[in-house]
Amino acid sequence: MAETYTFDAKDLAEIEKLTAKYPEKQAAVLPVLWYAQDKFGHSDPAVQKLVSETLGVPEAHIRGVVSFYTQFYDKPMGKNVLDVCTCLSCQVCGGYDMLHYIEEKLGIKAGETTPDGQFSLQSVECLGACGYAPMLQVTNDKFVNHLTREKVDKLIEDLKAGNKPEFESNPMPQHEKGS
């Protein structure tokens, strides 16, 4: 039951703006895939076909790009994707403890999606928040830093209620001391 995906006139106007940034259309593959994934929630083969036709770039090329970059989902994912960093600083500051706690809480393993389609869980490489470990990212967007079990509990409740996390600013400690 393959779904069909389409871009409407507004989408095409946005895509036109994206391609205008580059001297050739192929350069817009990443931005247009992002645009499509934001709209459809994933970049499965049907979405890849749409992007291919829209940009006039071979489907095989789009497929290659999607499979190369970890943030493009080549199949539908849960409504909320929890990417728990377990790399280096997060590893030594309890990243795996947090991952295992979430696994237990959601009843799934990393790489799986809950049966109700609410959550997908992944163990991921460094997200660039090393000083605020352990941390996770919600569906390629906001970072949730300094994770504790309580913070995870609250996050999952919030996400179930449809509330996305706010942007967490991490000021320079030097500034706080007023030095």
């Binding site: 600083s89 030594v92 500051c93 090393c130 000083g131 605020y132 470990a133 991490n170 320079m172 400690p173 030097q174």
Partner: peptide
């Protein structure tokens, strides 16, 4: 300097 891991006050310092 981005300082992380087992320190009391991790963060970016200039």
């Amino acid at each position: 300097y981005g300082i992380s891991g087992h320190v009391n006050r991790p963060g970016v310092y200039e």
